[in-house]
């Protein structure tokens, strides 16, 4: 594992190892000194062609906790707006000494191109490419779920037998895609719920059960319900009649939340549209992992950066 581009090509052992290393990273948050010297002298570049707050801050804070130097680059106000290509931008960054590049791009496959085009020789971490993948989000979701299910005994374990319902805009969601592949690899049973208009072509071939109605999926008694954000910025076409109707049929309303099994957790990658895909009573309950997911995101990104950047062999621990 030299790069982290997708969860589809992530082997089960590699995935479990990332989660295990993240456990040790999480443990450092309780220490007097929260910083580790592991990546001292390494340079991590955050290359963001698309707006992001939490992912960028999360990677930045992960790199700093590992004592790496961090350069953050956002396309706005840079030479990209003068027409500089991805290739030239990347080569410039590597010439400045980048050991790893965390890239978010609006085009699906941008991270893969950077990793395999032969332009540069740095570890590439995909932080979201178009509607393709967002692997660290899926890893932090799996980590959050594993901790809730197994607690202190989580190390070394996968998610065999866990039942996860993912609801919302599957069509545009890279979070959903990354989660489907990773959860399936880790042995979980995945259920997807979306209106027909928000189901991508070829969804039948995914390792998941597809439902059109949320109530059908919730009737399976899930361990976790993951609500996806309705991405208003991508909703240019009429995918569903009105937001009210969406909330009524596919939203995690107060009534649906109350009817869930008592130990089902509620996940959301953020930012949330309260009252649309998720009711406040669900978002603010103790069974909601929204803030845990943010905290765990830093641990997962520390683990990924450590595994990809520290050794001479790119993560073959």
């Amino acid at each position: 594992m030299r790069h982290l581009l997708s969860t589809k090509d992530l082997a089960r052992d590699d995935a479990v190892r990332i989660l295990d290393v993240a456990e040790e990273m999480a443990a450092t948050a309780d220490r007097e000194v929260k910083k580790l010297p592991a990546l001292r002298g390494k340079t991590i570049v955050n290359l963001f062609f698309e707006d992001s707050t939490r992912t960028r801050l999360s990677f930045e804070s992960a790199a700093k906790r590992l004592s790496a130097d961090v350069i953050t680059f956002s396309a706005k106000g840079s030479s990209v707006s003068k027409g500089e290509s991805l290739k030239d931008t990347a080569q410039t960054l590597v010439a400045m000494g980048a050991d790893a590049i965390v890239v978010r791009h609006h085009a699906s496959g941008a991270a893969h191109r950077l990793a395999h085009a032969g332009w540069i020789d740095a570890a590439i971490i995909n932080a979201g490419d178009g509607t393709h993948e967002h692997p660290t989000q899926a890893l932090l979701d799996a980590f959050t779920l594993r901790r809730r299910l197994h607690g202190e005994d989580a190390r070394g374990r996968a998610l065999d037998g866990a039942r996860v319902v993912i609801v919302g805009d599957i069509l545009h969601s890279r979070v959903a895609r990354s989660n489907v592949w990773l959860l399936a690899t880790l042995g979980a049973e995945v259920h997807l719920v979306a209106p027909r208009t928000l189901q991508p072509a070829g969804i039948e071939a995914w390792p998941a059960t597809v439902h059109e109605l949320l109530d059908d999926a919730l009737a399976t008694g899930p361990d976790a319900v993951m609500m996806l954000r309705i991405q208003r910025e991508r909703m240019h076409d009429a995918f569903f009649p009105t937001e009210r109707e969406y909330a009524r049929i596919w939203g995690l309303t107060a009534e649906r939340f109350a009817a869930l099994p008592a130990d089902t957790i509620v996940m959301h990658p953020g930012p949330m549209n309260r009252g649309l895909e998720i009711a406040s009573v669900a978002a603010d309950s103790t069974r909601s992992t929204v803030l845990d997911q943010v905290t765990n995101g830093v641990s997962i990104r520390m683990a990924v950066l450590y595994l990809l950047v520290s050794g001479t062999d790119g993560g073959r621990a």
């Binding site: 290393v21 010297p37 592991a38 450590y306 520290s310 050794g311 001479t312 790119g314 621990a317």
Partner: peptide
């Protein structure tokens, strides 16, 4: 995480 040979050997899992 505190070893002085992290950059010289294969990745070690903590």
């Amino acid at each position: 995480m505190h070893r002085d040979d992290l950059g010289r050997s294969a990745t070690r899992a903590p």
